[in-house]
Simulated assay, not measured.
Amino acid sequence: MPEAQMQIEGIGLSFGGVRALSGITFNIYPSTIQAIIGPNGAGKTSMLNCISGLYKPQQGQIRFEGQNLIGRAPHEIARLGIARSFQNIELFRHMTVVDNLMLGRHVHMRGGVLTGGLYWGPGQREEIAHREAVEQVIDLLEIQSIRKKTVGSLSYGLQKRVELGRALAMHPRLLLLDEPMAGMNSEEKEDMARFILDISEEQRTTIVLIEHDMGVVMDISDNVAVLEFGQLIAYGTPAEVKANPAVIAAYLGQEHS
């Protein structure tokens, strides 16, 4: 087994008297698809928010490639190579697809106002490099035909694809996807699952995925972490998790010890 790319150790998160996460510990390995599943309110999005810096847990550590993430601001974590898509679409609806994807490059933009304004020398070279990176994302996600369209005019499924593209435009080493297939029909889900597999296999990007569709999770994930009431009740391969009595009980609504 390779060395873990991310180590999550003993994460505890509370809001007032409400315990959202309690003692969460598991590893995420390079170039794998790691699913986080569980019933509604289990703490899945809270876990992603701790990784991306939106929440600061009161206990535990999160280390990414040797760097401690606890206490870092979201933009600092993004600069370390961690990108995020959200449960609710967070795109600029009045801007084009290409312009939204270019915004995903912001963490890599180093040209100052002066060089960017003059558009010569380093500013021009940087712009060309960012445009090339965006073109690669457009090709990968097969969105050439909508590149000039405003995001607000697109179907829900295509908007979700563009949001994945914006996160991917960062060229992250770890990609956090919060329900990327929510609200999609079966054809759109199949497309999204294929794109996620392509990103994992072709770009060797590590993916952490929250998803409710168990069929998709079991088909594309390398490892699955199962949360219930803010606690980790199972971790392993899809086959191991599917056979775990605690997981079966959680999803069937039965009590388990």
Rank of each mutant, 00 (worst) to 15 (best):
residue 139 D to I: 01
residue 75 H to M: 07
residue 242 K to P: 01
residue 19 R to N: 15
residue 154 L to V: 14
residue 42 A to I: 06
residue 178 D to A: 06
residue 11 I to D: 03
residue 213 D to A: 05
residue 136 Q to G: 12
residue 117 G to W: 05
residue 149 K to W: 00
residue 245 P to T: 11
residue 32 T to C: 13
residue 203 Q to R: 11
residue 232 L to R: 05
residue 246 A to D: 09
residue 37 I to C: 03
residue 57 P to Y: 05
residue 104 G to V: 06
residue 226 V to S: 02
residue 101 L to H: 07
residue 206 T to Q: 10
residue 183 G to I: 10
residue 147 R to P: 11
residue 181 M to A: 14
residue 229 F to R: 12
residue 224 V to K: 07
residue 149 K to Y: 00
residue 183 G to W: 02
residue 162 V to F: 08
residue 1 M to F: 12
residue 5 Q to H: 01
residue 244 N to P: 00
residue 164 L to R: 05
residue 13 L to P: 03
residue 23 G to I: 03
residue 198 D to E: 12
residue 32 T to N: 13
residue 199 I to P: 06
residue 255 E to C: 00
residue 220 I to M: 01
residue 239 A to S: 14
residue 66 G to D: 10
residue 200 S to Q: 14
residue 90 E to Q: 13
residue 32 T to S: 15
residue 250 A to K: 03
residue 176 L to A: 05
residue 114 L to D: 04
residue 160 K to R: 15
residue 192 M to T: 13
residue 58 Q to G: 15
residue 154 L to Q: 10
residue 226 V to Q: 00
residue 251 Y to I: 11
residue 45 T to D: 03
residue 75 H to C: 08
residue 155 S to G: 15
residue 80 L to R: 00
residue 51 I to Q: 02
residue 152 G to Y: 12
residue 27 N to V: 11
residue 221 S to K: 03
residue 190 E to T: 14
residue 229 F to W: 08
residue 110 R to A: 06
residue 173 R to G: 11
residue 201 E to A: 02
residue 168 L to H: 06
residue 46 S to D: 00
residue 209 L to H: 07
residue 55 Y to D: 01
residue 22 S to M: 04
residue 133 A to H: 03
residue 137 V to P: 11
residue 7 Q to I: 09
residue 229 F to E: 15
residue 176 L to N: 05
residue 231 Q to E: 14
residue 22 S to Y: 11
residue 137 V to G: 12
residue 17 G to D: 14
residue 240 E to V: 04
residue 3 E to L: 08
residue 64 F to D: 09
residue 178 D to T: 11
residue 14 S to W: 09
residue 71 G to Y: 04
residue 231 Q to W: 00
residue 3 E to I: 09
residue 158 L to R: 13
residue 18 V to M: 14
